[in-house]
Amino acid sequence: MVKYKDETLDRTFAALSDPTRRALLARLGDQDSLSVSKLAQPFAMSLPAIMKHLDVLSDAGLIAREKTGRTVACRLTARPMEQAMNWLNHYARFWSENLDRLAAFVEEDPWPTNLLPPSLTPTSPRAQASPSRAVSARGRRKSTPRGPSRKT
C-alpha cells in the first residue's frame, strides 16, 4: 500500500472540498500568478472571506503567496496535489482491476438454463413476459383495506 503522511493528504482534500477554493485554484491554473485582488474579483464575497479561503489553500501547501510592496500575489504549488493524485491513482488501479474481474466473470458464462424453473425457461410463454411479473403473479395476495389516516 502507498504510504503518505495522513496530515498532508487530510489538509489537501479538506482544502479541495470547498467549491470556492477549487474555483480559486482553477483561476490560478489559468495564469502563472495573480494578485489577491484580481483573484477575488469574480467572487461575490468580501475580501476577508477570500483571504480565509487563501489561508486554507496556503496551509495545505496548494498555493504560495509572495508579497511585493503592497501587492500579494498567489501561485500554485504542485507537491501536495501530486501526493493526492498518487493516492487516488493507487485506488483507481484497485477499483479498475476489481471491476475488470467482475466484468470478465459476468461475461464469462451465461446463466445456465437448466437451473431456471421450467416456467421461466427461454422457450416457455411465461418467460416471454417479464420474469418479475411471472414470479409476482403467483405469489400475489389481496391487500387489506387501508386503515384510517392519521392527521397531523
Score class of each variant (00 low, 15 high):
82 E>R: 12
138 R>H: 09
37 S>K: 11
132 S>V: 03
98 N>S: 13
142 K>G: 15
4 Y>D: 03
12 T>N: 05
92 A>V: 13
139 G>F: 05
137 A>Q: 11
18 D>G: 11
32 D>W: 01
62 L>E: 03
143 S>T: 09
65 R>E: 09
71 T>E: 06
58 S>K: 08
56 V>D: 03
9 L>F: 04
112 P>T: 10
115 L>I: 13
63 I>Y: 02
73 A>L: 04
84 A>D: 07
48 P>V: 12
68 T>R: 00
62 L>V: 07
54 L>G: 02
122 P>S: 13
120 L>D: 03
45 M>D: 08
72 V>W: 00
92 A>T: 14
59 D>A: 15
28 L>N: 11
124 S>Y: 00
73 A>E: 03
106 V>I: 14
108 E>Y: 07
114 N>V: 12
58 S>Y: 03
146 R>I: 14
36 V>M: 03
107 E>M: 06
144 T>E: 07
121 T>V: 12
19 P>L: 02
140 R>M: 10
104 A>R: 12
19 P>N: 00
70 R>Q: 10
29 G>V: 06
28 L>A: 08
101 R>N: 12
10 D>E: 11
84 A>T: 03
132 S>C: 06
47 L>R: 15
111 W>K: 07
59 D>S: 14
84 A>F: 00
96 S>L: 09
126 R>G: 02
12 T>A: 10
8 T>G: 00
33 S>H: 01
15 A>L: 01
117 P>M: 04
3 K>G: 11
89 N>W: 00
14 A>F: 01
3 K>S: 14
152 T>R: 07
137 A>S: 14
115 L>K: 11
129 A>Q: 08
124 S>C: 08
29 G>P: 01
45 M>F: 03
4 Y>V: 14
80 P>T: 10
140 R>S: 12
148 P>K: 11
73 A>S: 14
139 G>W: 02
2 V>D: 01
131 P>A: 07
6 D>I: 11
137 A>K: 07
65 R>P: 06
45 M>V: 13
12 T>V: 05
140 R>T: 12
22 R>Y: 05
117 P>H: 02
74 C>L: 01
39 L>K: 02
30 D>R: 13
144 T>Y: 04
32 D>C: 04
85 M>H: 12
77 T>L: 06
119 S>H: 10
60 A>S: 13
116 L>R: 04
33 S>R: 07
51 M>W: 03
57 L>V: 10
44 A>N: 08
104 A>G: 11
98 N>L: 05
19 P>I: 06
61 G>F: 00
1 M>K: 04
83 Q>C: 05
133 R>Q: 11
18 D>E: 08
41 Q>F: 03
75 R>G: 13
81 M>V: 09
103 A>M: 05
20 T>K: 02
86 N>R: 13
112 P>W: 04
43 F>G: 07
37 S>M: 06
82 E>G: 05
1 M>S: 14
104 A>I: 04
137 A>D: 12
51 M>S: 15
94 F>K: 15
28 L>E: 10
7 E>A: 12
149 S>A: 13
118 P>T: 10
